[in-house]
Design a protein around this nucleic acid. Structure first.
Lengths: 137, 137
DNA sequence: CTAGGTGCAAAATGTTTGCACACGA
DNA sequence: TCGTGTGCAAACATTTTGCACCTAG
Protein backbone atom coordinates (compact mmCIF):
# COMPACT_ATOMS: atom_id res chain seq x y z
CA UNK A 1 0.00 0.00 0.00
CA UNK A 2 2.73 2.42 0.99
CA UNK A 3 4.63 1.33 -2.09
CA UNK A 4 1.59 2.14 -4.20
CA UNK A 5 1.05 5.53 -2.65
CA UNK A 6 4.56 6.45 -3.68
CA UNK A 7 3.77 5.45 -7.23
CA UNK A 8 0.80 7.74 -7.58
CA UNK A 9 1.65 10.63 -9.85
CA UNK A 10 0.32 14.16 -9.42
CA UNK A 11 -2.29 13.57 -12.09
CA UNK A 12 -3.56 10.38 -10.47
CA UNK A 13 -5.92 9.96 -7.60
CA UNK A 14 -6.06 7.50 -4.79
CA UNK A 15 -9.67 6.45 -4.54
CA UNK A 16 -11.50 4.17 -2.15
CA UNK A 17 -12.05 1.71 -5.02
CA UNK A 18 -8.32 1.41 -5.66
CA UNK A 19 -7.56 1.04 -1.98
CA UNK A 20 -10.08 -1.73 -1.41
CA UNK A 21 -9.13 -3.68 -4.52
CA UNK A 22 -5.44 -3.48 -3.68
CA UNK A 23 -6.13 -4.47 -0.11
CA UNK A 24 -8.16 -7.47 -1.21
CA UNK A 25 -5.49 -8.63 -3.64
CA UNK A 26 -2.73 -8.29 -1.12
CA UNK A 27 -4.62 -10.42 1.36
CA UNK A 28 -5.43 -13.34 -0.87
CA UNK A 29 -3.30 -15.99 -2.49
CA UNK A 30 -6.12 -17.43 -4.58
CA UNK A 31 -5.38 -15.77 -7.95
CA UNK A 32 -8.90 -14.40 -8.31
CA UNK A 33 -10.58 -13.57 -11.60
CA UNK A 34 -11.92 -10.08 -12.28
CA UNK A 35 -15.43 -11.34 -11.57
CA UNK A 36 -14.37 -12.76 -8.21
CA UNK A 37 -12.61 -9.55 -7.26
CA UNK A 38 -15.71 -7.61 -8.29
CA UNK A 39 -17.93 -9.73 -6.07
CA UNK A 40 -15.60 -9.48 -3.10
CA UNK A 41 -15.08 -5.76 -3.40
CA UNK A 42 -18.81 -5.24 -3.86
CA UNK A 43 -19.29 -6.31 -0.26
CA UNK A 44 -17.50 -3.15 0.80
CA UNK A 45 -18.50 -0.83 -2.06
CA UNK A 46 -21.91 -2.06 -3.26
CA UNK A 47 -22.18 0.41 -6.14
CA UNK A 48 -18.84 -0.46 -7.73
CA UNK A 49 -19.00 -1.55 -11.36
CA UNK A 50 -17.16 -4.34 -13.09
CA UNK A 51 -15.59 -1.94 -15.55
CA UNK A 52 -14.01 0.00 -12.71
CA UNK A 53 -12.53 -3.24 -11.42
CA UNK A 54 -11.08 -3.96 -14.84
CA UNK A 55 -9.71 -0.45 -15.20
CA UNK A 56 -8.05 -0.54 -11.80
CA UNK A 57 -6.61 -4.01 -12.38
CA UNK A 58 -5.09 -2.84 -15.65
CA UNK A 59 -3.59 0.15 -13.90
CA UNK A 60 -2.09 -2.03 -11.16
CA UNK A 61 -0.71 -4.45 -13.71
CA UNK A 62 0.90 -1.60 -15.64
CA UNK A 63 2.51 -0.37 -12.42
CA UNK A 64 3.65 -3.96 -11.78
CA UNK A 65 1.86 -3.99 -8.45
CA UNK A 66 0.07 -7.12 -9.55
CA UNK A 67 0.57 -9.67 -12.26
CA UNK A 68 -2.08 -10.50 -14.80
CA UNK A 69 -2.06 -14.15 -15.81
CA UNK A 70 -3.81 -14.36 -19.13
CA UNK A 71 -3.71 -15.40 -22.73
CA UNK A 72 -6.01 -13.32 -24.88
CA UNK A 73 -6.63 -15.67 -27.79
CA UNK A 74 -6.26 -19.44 -27.87
CA UNK A 75 -3.53 -20.84 -30.08
CA UNK A 76 -3.29 -24.35 -31.42
CA UNK A 77 -0.16 -26.44 -31.79
CA UNK A 78 0.09 -29.78 -33.54
CA UNK A 79 3.34 -30.49 -31.72
CA UNK A 80 1.86 -31.99 -28.60
CA UNK A 81 4.90 -32.89 -26.53
CA UNK A 82 5.41 -30.49 -23.65
CA UNK A 83 7.94 -27.91 -24.75
CA UNK A 84 8.71 -24.41 -23.63
CA UNK A 85 7.60 -21.30 -25.51
CA UNK A 86 8.85 -17.79 -25.86
CA UNK A 87 6.24 -15.08 -26.25
CA UNK A 88 7.48 -11.75 -27.55
CA UNK A 89 5.84 -8.87 -25.70
CA UNK A 90 6.17 -6.64 -28.71
CA UNK A 91 5.22 -8.61 -31.81
CA UNK A 92 3.23 -11.33 -29.99
CA UNK A 93 5.06 -14.06 -31.90
CA UNK A 94 5.11 -17.38 -30.08
CA UNK A 95 8.32 -19.30 -30.59
CA UNK A 96 9.11 -22.90 -29.73
CA UNK A 97 12.11 -23.60 -27.60
CA UNK A 98 14.03 -26.72 -27.09
CA UNK A 99 15.52 -26.92 -23.70
CA UNK A 100 17.18 -30.02 -22.47
CA UNK A 101 15.98 -29.87 -18.89
CA UNK A 102 12.35 -30.02 -19.93
CA UNK A 103 11.99 -33.61 -18.87
CA UNK A 104 13.10 -32.66 -15.41
CA UNK A 105 10.19 -30.27 -15.25
CA UNK A 106 7.67 -32.91 -16.16
CA UNK A 107 9.06 -35.56 -13.87
CA UNK A 108 9.24 -33.20 -10.95
CA UNK A 109 7.51 -34.63 -7.95
CA UNK A 110 5.08 -32.15 -6.56
CA UNK A 111 3.36 -32.33 -3.21
CA UNK A 112 0.34 -30.61 -4.60
CA UNK A 113 -0.79 -33.34 -6.98
CA UNK A 114 -0.07 -35.36 -10.07
CA UNK A 115 1.44 -33.59 -13.06
CA UNK A 116 0.44 -34.61 -16.57
CA UNK A 117 1.74 -31.72 -18.58
CA UNK A 118 3.26 -28.29 -18.28
CA UNK A 119 3.38 -25.02 -20.14
CA UNK A 120 6.45 -22.88 -19.75
CA UNK A 121 6.24 -19.44 -21.27
CA UNK A 122 9.15 -17.07 -21.35
CA UNK A 123 8.18 -13.45 -21.79
CA UNK A 124 10.50 -10.95 -23.32
CA UNK A 125 11.60 -9.32 -26.51
CA UNK A 126 12.65 -11.42 -29.46
CA UNK A 127 15.76 -10.66 -31.48
CA UNK A 128 13.88 -8.83 -34.20
CA UNK A 129 12.09 -6.57 -31.76
CA UNK A 130 15.30 -5.95 -29.81
CA UNK A 131 16.90 -4.73 -33.04
CA UNK A 132 13.98 -2.44 -33.75
CA UNK A 133 14.27 -0.98 -30.23
CA UNK A 134 17.92 -0.22 -30.83
CA UNK A 135 17.39 1.50 -34.16
CA UNK A 136 14.74 3.70 -32.54
CA UNK A 137 17.31 5.24 -30.19
CA UNK B 1 -3.08 -38.27 -40.52
CA UNK B 2 -2.83 -42.04 -40.41
CA UNK B 3 -2.72 -41.77 -36.64
CA UNK B 4 -5.92 -39.75 -36.70
CA UNK B 5 -7.72 -42.14 -39.02
CA UNK B 6 -7.08 -44.90 -36.54
CA UNK B 7 -8.63 -42.79 -33.81
CA UNK B 8 -11.91 -42.28 -35.60
CA UNK B 9 -14.62 -44.32 -33.96
CA UNK B 10 -17.46 -45.96 -35.83
CA UNK B 11 -19.78 -43.18 -34.86
CA UNK B 12 -17.47 -40.50 -36.16
CA UNK B 13 -16.88 -39.32 -39.69
CA UNK B 14 -13.80 -38.19 -41.46
CA UNK B 15 -14.81 -35.07 -43.37
CA UNK B 16 -12.90 -32.85 -45.79
CA UNK B 17 -13.01 -30.07 -43.21
CA UNK B 18 -11.24 -32.22 -40.62
CA UNK B 19 -8.69 -33.40 -43.14
CA UNK B 20 -7.76 -29.92 -44.33
CA UNK B 21 -7.58 -28.42 -40.84
CA UNK B 22 -5.38 -31.25 -39.61
CA UNK B 23 -3.18 -30.99 -42.65
CA UNK B 24 -2.76 -27.26 -42.16
CA UNK B 25 -1.88 -27.65 -38.50
CA UNK B 26 0.63 -30.37 -39.15
CA UNK B 27 2.42 -28.23 -41.69
CA UNK B 28 2.83 -25.10 -39.64
CA UNK B 29 4.89 -24.29 -36.57
CA UNK B 30 3.34 -20.87 -36.06
CA UNK B 31 0.81 -21.65 -33.29
CA UNK B 32 -2.11 -20.14 -35.19
CA UNK B 33 -5.26 -18.76 -33.60
CA UNK B 34 -8.69 -20.12 -34.56
CA UNK B 35 -9.25 -17.07 -36.74
CA UNK B 36 -5.96 -17.63 -38.58
CA UNK B 37 -6.77 -21.30 -39.13
CA UNK B 38 -10.20 -20.30 -40.39
CA UNK B 39 -8.74 -17.88 -42.92
CA UNK B 40 -6.17 -20.37 -44.17
CA UNK B 41 -8.61 -23.25 -44.46
CA UNK B 42 -11.10 -20.96 -46.20
CA UNK B 43 -8.72 -20.80 -49.16
CA UNK B 44 -9.42 -24.45 -49.77
CA UNK B 45 -13.02 -24.68 -48.49
CA UNK B 46 -14.53 -21.23 -49.07
CA UNK B 47 -17.86 -22.03 -47.44
CA UNK B 48 -16.40 -23.30 -44.14
CA UNK B 49 -17.62 -21.53 -41.02
CA UNK B 50 -15.71 -20.40 -38.00
CA UNK B 51 -17.85 -22.53 -35.71
CA UNK B 52 -16.86 -25.65 -37.61
CA UNK B 53 -13.24 -24.70 -37.14
CA UNK B 54 -13.80 -24.33 -33.42
CA UNK B 55 -15.67 -27.61 -33.20
CA UNK B 56 -12.97 -29.51 -35.04
CA UNK B 57 -10.19 -27.92 -33.02
CA UNK B 58 -11.91 -28.97 -29.81
CA UNK B 59 -12.26 -32.50 -31.12
CA UNK B 60 -8.57 -32.67 -32.07
CA UNK B 61 -7.56 -31.28 -28.71
CA UNK B 62 -9.67 -33.86 -26.92
CA UNK B 63 -8.02 -36.60 -28.95
CA UNK B 64 -4.64 -35.03 -28.07
CA UNK B 65 -3.82 -34.63 -31.74
CA UNK B 66 -3.16 -30.97 -31.08
CA UNK B 67 -2.59 -28.87 -28.03
CA UNK B 68 -4.69 -25.86 -27.17
CA UNK B 69 -2.71 -23.10 -25.50
CA UNK B 70 -5.18 -20.94 -23.69
CA UNK B 71 -6.33 -19.42 -20.48
CA UNK B 72 -10.04 -18.79 -20.41
CA UNK B 73 -10.28 -16.08 -17.82
CA UNK B 74 -7.60 -13.71 -16.62
CA UNK B 75 -6.42 -14.10 -13.06
CA UNK B 76 -4.64 -11.54 -10.95
CA UNK B 77 -1.85 -12.14 -8.51
CA UNK B 78 -0.38 -9.61 -6.11
CA UNK B 79 2.72 -11.75 -5.71
CA UNK B 80 4.63 -10.42 -8.68
CA UNK B 81 7.88 -12.35 -8.56
CA UNK B 82 8.04 -15.07 -11.22
CA UNK B 83 6.97 -18.32 -9.61
CA UNK B 84 5.54 -21.56 -10.93
CA UNK B 85 1.89 -22.48 -10.73
CA UNK B 86 -0.08 -25.66 -10.64
CA UNK B 87 -3.45 -25.64 -12.36
CA UNK B 88 -5.81 -28.46 -11.48
CA UNK B 89 -7.63 -29.74 -14.55
CA UNK B 90 -10.59 -30.76 -12.48
CA UNK B 91 -11.34 -28.00 -9.99
CA UNK B 92 -9.50 -25.21 -11.85
CA UNK B 93 -7.73 -24.16 -8.66
CA UNK B 94 -4.48 -22.37 -9.29
CA UNK B 95 -1.81 -23.13 -6.71
CA UNK B 96 1.50 -21.42 -6.13
CA UNK B 97 4.61 -23.50 -6.12
CA UNK B 98 7.99 -22.76 -4.76
CA UNK B 99 10.69 -24.44 -6.69
CA UNK B 100 14.28 -23.71 -6.06
CA UNK B 101 15.44 -23.88 -9.66
CA UNK B 102 13.18 -21.06 -10.68
CA UNK B 103 16.01 -18.59 -10.85
CA UNK B 104 17.75 -20.83 -13.32
CA UNK B 105 14.73 -20.53 -15.57
CA UNK B 106 14.78 -16.78 -15.49
CA UNK B 107 18.51 -16.46 -15.98
CA UNK B 108 18.54 -18.92 -18.83
CA UNK B 109 20.23 -17.47 -21.86
CA UNK B 110 18.04 -17.87 -24.87
CA UNK B 111 19.11 -17.40 -28.46
CA UNK B 112 15.67 -16.18 -29.34
CA UNK B 113 15.69 -12.94 -27.34
CA UNK B 114 15.82 -11.31 -23.95
CA UNK B 115 13.79 -12.82 -21.15
CA UNK B 116 12.12 -10.57 -18.58
CA UNK B 117 9.72 -12.97 -16.97
CA UNK B 118 8.29 -16.43 -17.24
CA UNK B 119 5.13 -18.32 -16.47
CA UNK B 120 5.42 -21.98 -15.67
CA UNK B 121 2.16 -23.84 -15.37
CA UNK B 122 1.96 -27.43 -14.33
CA UNK B 123 -1.23 -29.16 -15.35
CA UNK B 124 -2.62 -32.09 -13.49
CA UNK B 125 -4.88 -33.18 -10.72
CA UNK B 126 -4.49 -31.74 -7.27
CA UNK B 127 -4.53 -33.91 -4.15
CA UNK B 128 -8.16 -33.22 -3.40
CA UNK B 129 -9.32 -34.13 -6.88
CA UNK B 130 -7.14 -37.24 -6.92
CA UNK B 131 -8.87 -38.38 -3.74
CA UNK B 132 -12.28 -37.78 -5.29
CA UNK B 133 -11.28 -39.83 -8.34
CA UNK B 134 -10.31 -42.71 -6.09
CA UNK B 135 -13.53 -42.72 -4.13
CA UNK B 136 -15.49 -42.82 -7.41
CA UNK B 137 -14.00 -46.20 -8.33
C1' DC C 1 -30.75 -44.29 -45.74
C1' DT C 2 -29.52 -42.10 -41.51
C1' DA C 3 -27.10 -40.26 -37.75
C1' DG C 4 -23.28 -37.28 -37.23
C1' DG C 5 -21.27 -32.99 -39.24
C1' DT C 6 -21.80 -28.45 -41.20
C1' DG C 7 -23.17 -23.53 -41.94
C1' DC C 8 -25.60 -19.89 -40.32
C1' DA C 9 -27.22 -16.87 -36.95
C1' DA C 10 -27.92 -15.98 -32.38
C1' DA C 11 -26.35 -16.44 -27.65
C1' DA C 12 -22.98 -16.57 -24.19
C1' DT C 13 -18.82 -15.05 -22.07
C1' DG C 14 -15.10 -11.97 -20.94
C1' DT C 15 -13.27 -7.40 -21.63
C1' DT C 16 -13.17 -2.55 -23.28
C1' DT C 17 -14.99 2.01 -24.22
C1' DG C 18 -17.91 6.45 -24.57
C1' DC C 19 -20.17 9.54 -21.91
C1' DA C 20 -22.25 12.21 -18.24
C1' DC C 21 -21.76 12.75 -13.52
C1' DA C 22 -19.21 12.40 -9.01
C1' DC C 23 -15.64 13.35 -6.06
C1' DG C 24 -10.47 13.62 -4.54
C1' DA C 25 -6.91 16.96 -4.24
C1' DT D 1 -13.00 24.23 -8.53
C1' DC D 2 -11.55 21.19 -12.02
C1' DG D 3 -10.07 17.38 -14.16
C1' DT D 4 -9.42 12.39 -13.15
C1' DG D 5 -12.13 8.42 -11.88
C1' DT D 6 -16.53 6.17 -11.68
C1' DG D 7 -20.95 3.84 -13.00
C1' DC D 8 -23.76 2.64 -16.52
C1' DA D 9 -24.81 0.82 -20.87
C1' DA D 10 -23.41 -0.29 -25.13
C1' DA D 11 -19.74 -2.09 -28.01
C1' DC D 12 -16.37 -5.50 -28.88
C1' DA D 13 -13.88 -9.91 -29.28
C1' DT D 14 -13.77 -14.67 -28.79
C1' DT D 15 -16.07 -18.92 -28.24
C1' DT D 16 -20.27 -21.82 -27.91
C1' DT D 17 -24.82 -23.46 -29.17
C1' DG D 18 -29.53 -24.40 -31.52
C1' DC D 19 -31.36 -25.76 -35.56
C1' DA D 20 -32.32 -27.12 -40.28
C1' DC D 21 -29.95 -29.05 -43.95
C1' DC D 22 -26.19 -31.88 -45.90
C1' DT D 23 -23.34 -35.82 -46.61
C1' DA D 24 -20.04 -39.75 -45.44
C1' DG D 25 -20.36 -44.38 -44.62
Amino acid sequence: LVKYKLMITKKERFTVQKQIILNYLQNTRTHPTAEKIYNEVKKKIPQISLSTVYRILKEFAKKKLIKEISFTESRFDSYTKPHPHFLCQSCQMLYDLNIKDQNKLLKKKLEIGKVFDFDLFYHGLCRNCLKKEKTKT
